[in-house]
């Protein structure tokens, strides 16, 4: 009795005090800046002070100014392609690896797991620079190998041809991050009760049928989480383009993503003069946020259609996405 009344007395102010340091830092350096950046998208000014309210003018320029909107829609479209290829390549390979590794008694699982995951721990900048060297048209390993095996005609200037450049950097991104979906699918597969497989095998279902009838349906929530994770990560991608192509997204803006476009408009300014347009940058950030929000909301709907759940089930994957941000 004594103790519980003590707990009640200590409630309120005291517990708030516990949460206070975290609340302050989190509010001051995350919540407020994010909201404020959206507010700033309605302002213009010189350099880093934005004090002139311009209504929707920044958005108008973003969507209607011929110069700016061309760049914006190009980057927006590229980001969707980036996301699409990543979904197709990175997550399919991840699922395949997880299926193989989850096989009963598969030897070497630990070692392969460790290897597949290595690139996740490396800096995108570092892997980007190295892949750039490998893809070099003159002395890059890829074209040398292609030429040696008689496919010299396929040796392309991968990063310099608008047809291939975006695909090339996307594949490098897939290479880097494939460890995440692999491990998430693996964890999902390992949670499927043994009896379900056994039942399927007694029914005479082969590998493919077991996959389609038993594994895939049970993995669907993980598929959803992986998709959201990829989505959030891809709409924030910057480093891979910065390292492999530069902040302009060359050749002819073929690899310009929302991340690089934001950097050029809002932070660095366009080379060579370099005067940033921070109000416009804030508008780009706000649009990115809106797209992310809509996407996450949609995924949440699809995944939790049956039972109305709060933010929590979606929370974790979004945090995973931070890894790539």
């Amino acid at each position: 009795m004594n103790s519980s009344s003590k707990v009640r007395r200590e409630s309120g102010a005291l517990w708030l005090l516990f949460a206070l340091p975290a609340l302050l830092v989190y509010a001051a350096f995350m919540a407020v800046p994010v909201i404020n950046s959206m507010r700033l998208s309605f302002f213009s000014g010189s350099g880093y002070t934005l004090d002139n309210f311009v209504g929707f003018n920044n958005y108008l320029r973003l969507f209607a100014d011929p110069e700016i909107s061309a760049r914006f829609f190009k980057a927006f479209g590229n980001t969707w392609v980036f996301f699409g290829i990543n979904m197709l390549v990175q997550n399919t390979i991840g699922l395949l690896f997880a299926l193989i590794l989850s096989g009963k008694g598969f030897k070497g699982k630990g070692a392969f797991r460790t290897i597949i995951f290595i690139p996740v721990t490396l800096s995108v900048l570092v892997t980007g620079y190295i892949w750039k060297l490998i893809l070099n048209p003159q002395w890059g390993a890829l074209n040398i190998i292609l030429t040696k095996v008689g496919l010299g005609a396929w040796a392309m200037p991968w990063l310099g041809d608008p047809r291939f450049a975006l695909t090339a950097i996307t594949l490098v991104s897939s290479w880097q991050w494939v460890g995440l979906p692999t491990m998430m699918f693996l964890a999902g597969l390992e949670r499927i009760p043994e009896e379900l497989f056994e039942a399927a095998q007694i029914d005479g279902a082969g590998g493919w049928l077991t996959f389609a009838r038993v594994k895939l349906p049970l993995l669907l929530p993980v598929v959803g989480i992986v998709s959201v994770l990829t989505f959030v990560g891809n709409f924030n991608a910057f480093d891979v383009v910065f390292a492999m192509e530069g902040a302009n997204g060359p050749p002819s803006y073929a690899t310009d993503l929302m991340g690089t476009f934001f950097y050029r408009t809002g932070i660095a300014g366009q080379h060579p003069v370099g005067i940033p347009d921070m109000g416009l940058g804030a508008a780009v950030a706000t649009v990115t946020f809106a797209v992310l929000f809509a996407g996450v909301l949609l995924a949440n709907r699809l995944m939790n259609g049956r039972e109305a759940q709060g933010a929590e089930p979606m929370a974790r994957p979004a945090a995973e996405g931070r890894l790539r941000a």
Binding site: N136, P137, Q138, P157, W158
Partner: peptide, 14 residues
Amino acid sequence: PKGFEALTYNDSNA
């Protein structure tokens, strides 16, 4: 050079 579209400034020098 072959692949000049993707050759950097430093590549040219080399």
